[in-house]
Design a binder for these strands. Structure first.
Length: 491
RNA sequence: GGUCAGAUGGCCGAGUGGCUAGGCACAGCUCUGCAAAAGCUGCUACACCGGUUCGAAUCCGGUUCUGACCUCCA
């Protein structure tokens, strides 16, 4: 299975070979965030998973169009707060425009993704900018008699669709089970009387008087339902049939199931491959805004959170996420993050050493085989943990070669350098975090280290240690080596 | 209640029936004025009970526990 890319398809529940519909073009869509709050750790996972895939597909010479949306039309808070949306609520509370709320959190999202070296998508459409497209799609679904209007709102007729279509094919849900479950545990929801069936979902909601985010439509002044934006925007930019649709596993139902229902009800095909990233857990429980156990990405970077023992850098987070496979849950803890931080530095140290390695006539290691292994792991459903493990194998060799315990041929050195760089930086998207590049600081440090050098030469350990201690307090580590001392700003 | 995933060494996490992933921690060593950093070496685990097999962490059945979805969520 190794020579070509395989990905796990939630639709078939199998790992399948990836074959684009129209090679060399590949269309992929990721359900982005609803921008009503600062991005938390969970948001980083899907973005990074797709970023690695985006990078890899691009390097495989595909012409990739990557669409990642921003949902800035607030979803309903819950059905009890009928007619009010999250973004609108925040806007009202702060006496600002809803778009100010959306913009603020969109900026925050972009900022942290940039820090984590996530490439921008090809297109980043906003739901609020595609209201006409959504209205058009709703009208088409109604024309196909799979949606109905009720009191100014439009609902998708799930029962009717289920008869002819294949509702539940993604999430494995059966309509009978849903109906059975509806009677027991389901909360009594307001507005249910407008629906023919409790499983029907809104395509368009009529706004109440206090609702501030609303648009005109043939049915009422209101706002689009939660699922329709993705159907409308993916069709607009990727066409009626595209390759990859991704998102968090918690969106599998009802969001993605509903998307399929809507799209196939107006002439679109179900996307070929569905990829779902698993959740980040905290003490074994899913991290979610609604559960109030979330850690913001910004908080992780600053260390400003009760659960955090220290700050963790953006690259530490990226590395931490890539060390687990995207389909596994990943448990958050200080211990795990500290392990990731050290592991990341070990990898970076090895990367920095390659260029200065001395070469011999032959090599002690089969680097071609090693290189093949990396591709095998990437092709195996983006197995980033194994890619990292394989890079660590090379890290050990690099250290051994550096210590003159192993040999490396000139030819293999080139191969090693290119391959290591390619996977570490180009594919996994890690970067060497700059510790210092400040001329003023360098000047000061050179002087301080020179004073300490003199002290050391005079065996004035008190002064030497005092300087070292003082610098540690200031956040700078001193490393004494054979060729003098160097310094490093602590992350 | 229904549906679906998991349970791996001190911790995090791979694992595609035979060839002990990897990282961190820990211990020893190298280096060092002492440290730190870095490097090397060591550390053979797979929830439980049955079964299939020459051989099972991996396949099958059962048990226990945990989680996700069924409601906004990445």
């Amino acid at each position: 299975m190794s020579s070509r890319l395989h990905i796990y398809n939630t639709l078939s529940k199998q790992t399948e070979e990836f074959e684009p519909i129209n090679p060399p073009f590949v269309g992929m869509y990721l359900c982005g965030p609803t921008v009503y709050g600062d991005p938390h750790l969970g948001h980083s996972r899907g973005a990074i998973m797709m970023d690695v895939l985006f990078r890899y597909l691009t390097h495989l010479r595909y012409k990739v169009r990557y669409v990642r949306n921003i949902t800035d039309v607030g979803h309903l808070l819950n059905d009890a707060d009928e007619g009010e949306d999250k973004i609108g609520k925040i806007a009202k509370a702060n006496h600002i425009e809803p778009m100010e709320v959306a913009q603020r959190y969109t900026n925050a999202y972009h900022k942290v993704l940039l820090q984590m070296n996530v490439l921008p998508p090809s297109i980043e459409p906003r739901a609020s900018g595609h209201i006409p497209e959504q209205i058009e799609m709703i009208a088409e679904i109604m024309a196909n008699d799979l949606a109905y209007e009720s009191n100014g709102s439009v609902y998708f007729d799930v029962l009717k669709y289920a008869k002819s279509g294949d509702y539940g094919k993604l999430s494995g849900r059966k309509i009978e089970d849903l109906l059975a479950g509806a009677g027991q545990e389901r909360r009594t929801l307001e507005g249910q009387e407008e629906k023919k069936n409790p499983n029907d979902f809104a395509l368009w909601k009529k706004a109440t008087s206090e609702h501030i985010m609303k648009w005109k439509s043939p049915w009422s002044e209101g706002f689009p339902g939660w699922h329709i934006e993705c159907s409308a925007m993916s069709e607009k930019y990727l066409g009626k049939m595209f390759d990859i649709h991704a998102g968090g596993i918690d969106l599998l139902f009802p969001h993605h199931e509903s998307e399929i229902a809507q799209s196939t009800s107006c002439g679109c095909s179900t996307p070929r491959y569905w990829m779902h990233n698993n959740m980040i857990t905290i003490n074994g429980q899913k991290m979610a805004k609604s559960l109030n156990n979330g850690v913001l990405i910004e908080e992780l970077f600053t260390g400003n959170h009760d659960l955090l023992e220290q700050a963790y850098s953006p690259m530490t987070l990226r590395f931490f996420l890539l060390q687990a496979h995207y389909r596994s849950t990943l448990d958050f803890s200080n211990e795990a993050l500290q392990a990731a931080e050290k592991g990341y530095h070990r990898l970076m140290n090895a990367a920095a050493k390659i260029a200065n390695l001395t070469t011999s006539i032959s090599s002690d290691v089969d680097f071609k085989k090693w290189r093949e292994k990396l591709f095998v792991h990437m092709n195996n459903d983006i197995a980033t943990p194994q890619v990292i493990a394989t890079l660590f194998e090379a890290a050990k060799w690099i250290n051994e070669i550096d210590a003159k315990n192993m040999c490396l041929s000139a030819e293999d050195k080139t191969l090693l350098q290119e391959t290591f760089t390619f996977f570490t930086f180009d594919i996994l998207g890690l970067t060497q975090e700059k510790t210092t590049n400040n001329e003023v600081l360098n000047g000061v440090m050179n002087m301080v280290l020179d004073i300490r050098k003199t002290a050391k030469e005079n065996k004035d350990w008190t002064t030497a240690d005092k300087i070292r201690e003082g610098l540690i307090q200031a956040g700078i580590d001193i490393m004494d080596g054979k060729e003098g001392s160097t310094f490093k700003i602590k992350q």
